[in-house]
């Protein structure tokens, strides 16, 4: 990994976009990177649009502002596409990663002319298959790791195993499901 990678997450309150951003900071940290993970706090309500951010760099990160020209955008809830210009400022060298069951041809018209890579993943399907419940953040985290290439997949899975073991120490039965969700998502993300 070289230089600075900036990621912006769009989700709805309660879907875990903030948690996913913090998990991404954690796994990138484990590779020796300098990281930032932070949410933008507004009125905190379930279902309200929320934004979270990551910076991952090989140099110390000094800027604390929000991210207006990201390299990657992750959209955890496709209904946001109607209301929010998710690709605003997004690098055309980068990519937008959207949680949807639709083909990207159906999604592209909603992206206000974005010319870069458009990636999709059906996080609901992945999550239902792996966990039997709908938690989109693990599949979306795996998708952004795959698309951005900020760390090798093997290392990512290894670190997430340890992270889940720590996070879910009191409910180890969900570790396997979450790991399965990550592994499926790494394969399922489409360009």
């Amino acid at each position: 990994m070289k230089g600075l990678t900036e990621i912006r997450w769009h989700g709805r309150g309660g879907q875990g976009a903030k948690t996913a951003a913090l998990l991404l900071a954690d796994v990138a940290f484990s590779t020796g990177a300098e990281v930032q993970g932070f949410p933008e706090y507004g009125p905190e309500r379930m279902g309200a649009p929320i934004t979270a951010y990551n910076r991952v760099s090989d140099k110390p990160i000094r800027v604390h502002s929000n991210i207006y020209a990201p390299d990657y955008v992750v959209v955890v809830d496709e209904t946001l596409l109607e209301d929010i210009d998710v690709t605003a400022g997004l690098s055309e060298e980068g990519a937008v990663i959207i949680n949807t069951a639709k083909d990207k041809e159906e999604i592209i018209p909603l992206l206000k002319g974005y010319q870069g890579r458009v990636c999709t993943i059906d996080a609901r399907k992945v999550s239902m298959e792996a966990l039997g419940m709908y938690f989109p953040n693990s599949p979306m985290l795996a998708a952004v790791i795959k698309v951005s290439g900020i760390m090798p997949e093997e290392k990512f899975l290894e670190e997430m195993q340890m992270s889940y073991e720590h996070k879910f120490a009191s409910k180890p039965q969900v570790i396997e499901g979450n790991m399965k969700a990550l592994k499926i998502a790494l394969k399922e993300v489409k360009e």
Partner: peptide, 8 residues
């Protein structure tokens, strides 16, 4: 800005 931002 710093209180809730995870950083090295």
């Amino acid at each position: 800005i710093t209180s809730h931002a995870v950083q090295n």
